[in-house]
Structures are given as C-alpha cells and as structure tokens.
Design a protein around this nucleic acid. Structure first.
Length: 257
DNA sequence: CTGGGGACGGGGCCC
DNA sequence: TGGGCCCCGTCCCCA
C-alpha cells in the first residue's frame, strides 16, 4: 500500500534546518527558510524542488492497483470503554508539524485515503489491557520477523512499530470537547486548536497565522514565485500536488497523463 | 474551475 | 523500548 508516508525516507540524515521558521505567539521562535524561495529558474531551486508532472503518471498508482490488502480494516466499534488519556493530559502547547522544503527525490506516490470526520461518532477506544493483549498476540501471528496487526493486513519489523500502528486502531487520545479520538497526543493537540483558535505558526511574509505547521508550509508555497509542483508540459508550477493533478486532468497536460 | 486554508493521518527519527 | 516530535502528505471545503 503505497501511502505517501510509507515510501518516504529520502534524507534520513540530512534534515534541513527548520529552526529557521517563525513560530510567534509562542515561546519558541522558528523561522522558515521556505519563506525565501528564490525566483527565476522555473524548474528547480535549492530550497524547494519542482516536481515534474511528466514523471508522475508511472508513479501515481492508486492503492487498488498496487496493494489492495493494505487498506486498514474498519475500526472495531463494539467495545466502548473508559479512556484514560484525555485532552488535558496531552497538553495544549505547541506541537510539531513542520513546513519544509520538499525532499530532493522526485518520487511521489499518490494514494487516496480514508478520512474520519468529526461527526460525533465515538470511535472505539480499547482499554490498555486490550491493547497490550493485541500486541502480545501479534508476534505469534507473524510469520517470523514480521509483526502483524490483527486489525488490518499491515505488518511491521518491530514490535514498537506495531504498537504505534495499533494506536491508530485504538485511538487512545480523546478530545474532551467533542469526543473525537486520535492515535497520538500531538494529533489531539492539533485538533484542540480547532476549538481554542490558537494559531502558533505565522507566515513571515504576510503574518497570517496557522494552527498547523503543515498548513503554514503549504501557505508559504503561495508566496513562492516558483512553486513546488511543476507541469511537465507547460512548466506551470503549483503549490500543491492536488492542484497539479487537477491541472493535468483538465486538459493542458492530457498528453502527460 | 482554481487556488488556498483547515484538519488530520501515519511512518521515521531522536532522545 | 517508548514517547514526543518531525516530516510529508491527503482530503474536504470554501472563496
């Protein structure tokens, strides 16, 4: 299942310096280098690589075409239970998602994924004992070095990775305001900002503030003269992959798709 | 229709 | 080994 996050690992040891990003309204100060994108060259620049659409078609494979079994199974909603981890326990300060120049490797995979809307439906949260039991069972199910998730076909090479994954099924972090549950505390923190209105990440160009670093990163693209994603046919650049996709599918680059 | 913002998911890395 | 954070990404919705 070629989910984007499963196929990364571009620069393991060469992370860019994100301490440059500004995070005002917050104790920490960060400054984002992306805010100063060079202009001119419309194909590639140092801080942000322009993706060429012409390389995309072969790489953009829907999940169904590549690994159908990888889709996580439905959540088990059968056993509601008390939840120890709460919004308060997870804090409210800054959290970490960051904007950032794209990886220098022009390999993108496209995989539409399911979304869980905040619809008021309480997701299932397993009690700690249940979660531990699942974790214990997992290695037994696995063939050998692999740890299999009992909720879905995923397998991992380490128990730690499996435990982390299982959290996506058990969703131990629950928002005390709306009841929505998350797999990790910082996801909950980010969600809580939607209630509090806190926006700790600001753009150095326009002072617009964001609650999410990733959104700031995307926003910074709008200030860039040359954007991250480029059409292989007309050389037009876009701030988002989705925009490039729309562009390509709507005529201009029909030959490239 | 396009561009952008909001919300969120999950693996990997670091401590 | 586990938790926190980083990074990258997607989808939905709206102007």
């Amino acid at each position: 299942m070629p989910r984007s996050f499963l196929v990364k690992k571009y620069f393991a040891k060469q992370k860019p310096n994100y301490s440059e990003l500004v995070c005002h309204n917050d104790t920490s100060l960060e400054r984002y280098p992306l805010a100063e994108l060079p202009s001119g060259d419309n194909t590639c620049f140092t801080t942000g690589l322009v993706w060429d659409l012409s390389v995309l078609p072969a790489l953009y494979l829907p999940i169904s075409q590549t690994e159908p079994s990888a889709t996580p199974g439905p959540l088990d909603l059968s056993s509601p239970s008390s939840l120890s981890s709460s919004a308060s326990s997870c804090g409210e300060e800054d959290e970490g998602r960051t904007s950032d120049p794209p990886s220098p490797e022009p390999v993108h995979t496209y995989a539409p994924r399911q979304r869980m809307k905040c619809t008021g439906v309480m997701p299932h949260i397993s009690p700690p004992e249940e979660e531990e039991e699942e974790e214990r069972k997992a290695p037994a199910i696995a063939a050998r070095p692999a740890f299999l998730c009992k909720h879905c076909p995923k397998e991992y090479t380490s128990l730690g990775a499996l435990k982390m994954h299982i959290r996506s099924h058990t969703l131990p972090c629950v928002c005390t305001t709306c009841g929505k549950a998350f797999s990790r505390p910082w996801l909950l923190r980010g969600h809580i900002r939607t209630h509090t209105g806190e926006r700790p990440f600001s753009c150095t160009h326009c002072n617009r503030a964001f609650a999410d670093r990733s959104n700031l990163r995307a926003h910074l693209q709008t200030h860039a003269e040359v954007k991250k994603y480029q059409c292989g046919v007309c050389s037009r650049t876009f701030s988002r992959m989705s925009l490039l996709q729309k562009h390509s599918s709507s005529g201009c680059c029909s030959s490239a798709v």
